[in-house]
Design a binder for these strands. Structure first.
Length: 479
RNA sequence: GGUCCCGUAGCCGAGUGGUUAGGCAACGGAUUGCAAAUCCGUUUACGGCGGUUCGAUUCCGCCCGGGACCUCCA
């Protein structure tokens, strides 16, 4: 069986066949660092993370690059001479654009850690690749595919017949009413900027190409430059949010393929935007959450991660606070089963004679099949929970418990949304004082002094432990 | 206006031309002094109207509702 992924370019499920056998190259459009990362951003980044983890699980050596866009995003106003988002944030806060970029880049990395993202191998900043962008621009100018007007360099759409092949946009003339400002400099309204000149701009560089003026790069060129630098002229997978498909990725394809003469990306993947409380997230509707805001509400990174990956990336996940509660309960169910298996495997709880190996193998096969079919996490989770049920029902041998534990470890390795394997807590691991309280409670129960028993339970709970009564007697677990 | 996606039981969400998704919640039962955990069971659904079919939630058409993109956006 092979991994099949929905390719936006071909509009069907394509089998992942790496350019170099056994190795997969991935590029992910990363954050634009002018504000705090929100949960919508991380739905996309977590999708990329799960993709990477699963591809690795399937035996491929993955090289992952995610850029940090720290320059160049133009606001609508910019078309009429306004400023870009970095600069706008700078004006509002009094910090320089550079300070803004570093601040939110740090915040982004922190969010990645909190959400247990496996760090990409490279996370380059656009501002560190001005020279590389310049050499592409230079080449496009030499080839006559790009042209310069008043220092601004534009990519000529007319010179690249494939323009529109990703997004399916075959625009002869731009629609009246669409948000397109007329730019007299462009030969074609669809031409996009590779290099911009604006003396008011804080971030400026001497032209990194021949015959240019001091300015700053357009938005799209950075990804071409960094992707090529780290991964070569052709890569296996490129991901981003659905909004990136047009114009960003369309432009990346145009400039990169015009430059190299080769197909840029094999499989383009786009994550659907999430909804919050059933509608698009927006500050004015009051349903806008940064990652930090959710964490500040008392939810763990693990819980948020679960809530954001539980639905397949191409479905519009509806994010709600109830959903976080479900995530918390679901994680607890999985961890409860793993903890019991761990106790049995460690000989801290009596083993039985049941063999869970078949159930574990079944669950793994279902999990793999679900993930292979375009990362169907919802279905994969069903396989995980099937093993939870089988485990809880069984009285496994120690070896069988270990086997099931290994399957859970694999599920965790791919999804990362359950947490580390619970420790096998047993009598010896519990503080003696608490063990004494537990004994007293047992005595109180025997004497039918339930008020005292409940008091003792409250004391134990106050110490951060909870009592679990079982057929083998009571046990203490960390709450 | 153009292009496209979706509408599944209380909620979140898989999937399928005729057979139990799963999670959460609720209720009943087992266990239990109570609670928690666990197990068993119950609530059996596919927006509406037509059409194709022996049979459609699953294919087609229309309608209603929600959403996305059309150079800020993950």
């Amino acid at each position: 069986m092979a991994i099949r992924l929905y390719n936006s370019l071909t509009r069907r499920l394509d089998e992942l066949r790496p350019l170099t056998p056994g190795k997969v190259t991935m590029y992910h459009c990363g954050p634009t660092v002018y504000s705090s990362p929100h949960i919508g951003n991380f739905r996309s980044f977590l999708f990329a993370d799960v993709l990477r983890r699963f591809v690795e699980d399937q035996g491929f050596a993955v090289t992952q690059v995610m850029n940090v866009t720290d320059v160049g995003h133009l606001t609508l106003d910019d078309i009429e001479g306004g400023e870009d988002k970095m600069e706008a944030a700078s004006r509002k806060t009094g910090k320089t654009a550079w300070e803004i970029a570093r601040q939110f880049e740090d915040e982004f990395h922190n969010c990645q850690r909190q959400l247990l993202v496996r760090m990409p191998h490279h996370m380059p900043r656009a501002t560190d690749f001005i020279a590389q962008m310049g050499s592409i621009i230079d080449d496009l100018l030499q080839k006559g595919i790009a042209y310069q007007v008043n220092g601004n360099v534009y990519f000529a759409i007319a010179a690249f017949p494939g323009y529109g092949k990703l997004s399916g946009k075959v625009i002869d003339e731009l629609e009246e009413g669409a948000r397109v400002a007329v730019n007299e400099e462009k030969r074609d309204a669809r031409d996009f900027a590779l290099w911009k000149v604006d003396h008011k701009h804080q971030m400026q560089w001497d032209a990194p190409f021949r015959g240019g003026a001091r300015g700053f790069p357009g938005w799209h060129i950075e990804c071409s430059a960094m992707s090529m630098h780290y991964l070569g002229r052709q890569i296996d997978i490129h991901t981003g949010g659905e909004d990136n498909m047009f114009p960003h990725h369309e432009c990346e394809i145009a400039q990169t393929e015009a430059h190299t003469g080769q197909q840029f990306v094999q499989i383009w993947m786009h994550a659907r935007h999430l909804l919050v409380n059933g509608t698009k997230m927006s500050k004015s509707l009051g349903n806008f959450y940064t990652v930090q805001q959710v964490l500040d509400l008392g939810w763990s990174g693990l819980e948020l991660r679960y809530a954001l990956i539980r639905v397949q990336y191409r479905q519009s996940l509806n994010f709600t606070m109830d959903g976080l509660g479900e995530a918390r309960a679901s994680i607890a169910r999985v961890q409860g089963a793993r903890a019991r298996l761990a106790r049995i495997a460690a000989g801290k709880e009596p083993a039985g004679a049941d063999d869970l190996a078949a159930a574990a193998a079944r669950a793994e096969a279902a999990f793999t099949a679900a993930m292979q079919e375009d990362l169907n996490v919802s279905e994969a989770l069903a396989a995980v929970f099937a093993l939870v049920g089988d485990s809880n029902r069984a009285q496994p041998t120690a070896a069988a418990a270990s086997a099931a534990l290994r399957s859970f470890a694999r599920f965790e390795d791919v999804l990362g949304c359950f947490g580390a394997e619970p420790k096998a807590e047993a009598a010896g691991d519990v503080p003696a004082a608490l063990q004494e309280l537990l004994s007293q409670r047992q005595a109180a129960k025997k004497a039918k002094d339930f008020a005292a028993a409940d008091r003792l339970r409250d004391q134990i709970a106050a110490a951060g432990w909870k009592i679990v009564d079982t057929a083998q007697g009571p046990r203490l677990e960390r709450a």
